[in-house]
């Protein structure tokens, strides 16, 4: 403890340490008090996979999807809006906004030249968006059997250096 004039002043490092320890302690205690405690280490890749499996979907990681780009019968489908698609997108991707699933999805997909033989890789913006999973689920229901989701989306694609096209 340092003394300044006549008043005791707690050392700054001690204040910082107390704040840190209190915060950590409270988080541990409150997490234990939850009806379903959140795990301290989350396997996000497995989480995405489980989510997709629940929907009956296959998933693919960006680096694996990269090896499929340009192969015959492989079509990348962007589930975002036309405005988002007009910005950056996977090179050669086709835009089938997720909203299309509320209309005649079969006709919308076929108007893009998609066939039931195609291996369709659906993506959206990033891990937080569900549009790709929802659209992929709808495409499967509409009779397209070979649908795969890239949950990491365009952000994941960018991270692995996948070719892009479109505006900034």
């Amino acid at each position: 403890m340092a003394q300044v004039g006549t008043r005791w002043l707690t050392p700054l490092w001690l204040e910082l340490a107390v704040i840190l320890v209190l915060g950590a302690g409270l988080s541990v205690a409150m997490n234990m008090a939850r009806t379903e405690p959140v795990p301290w280490v989350i396997d996000f890749a497995a989480l995405d996979k489980r989510d997709a499996l629940r929907r009956g979907l296959e998933t693919i990681e960006p680096h694996a999807a990269l090896t499929m780009l340009g192969k015959p019968g492989v079509v990348f489908v962007d589930a975002r809006t036309a405005e988002e698609f007009a910005g950056q997108r996977v090179a050669g991707a086709k835009n089938l906004p997720q909203e299309a699933m509320y209309g005649d999805l079969d006709a919308a997909a076929k108007s893009l030249g998609l066939t039931t033989e195609d291996r369709i890789v659906v993506y959206c913006g990033n891990l937080l968006c569900d549009k790709s999973k929802e659209l992929a689920e709808a495409l499967r229901t509409a009779g397209f059997p070979y649908v795969t989701v890239m949950p990491e989306g365009l952000d994941g694609w960018r991270t692995v250096g996948g070719p892009m096209e479109g505006g900034a």
Partner: peptide, 30 residues
């Protein structure tokens, strides 16, 4: 919150949940 933090792609996956759990409580203490 953990998913948002992961999306920043700054922390390794194994650290995301821990930070996501502790950080808000440090904010509370502060």
């Amino acid at each position: 919150f953990a998913k948002i933090m992961r999306n920043y792609q700054i922390l390794p996956d194994m650290a995301v949940a821990g930070v996501a759990l502790v950080l808000p409580w440090i904010e509370v203490v502060v």
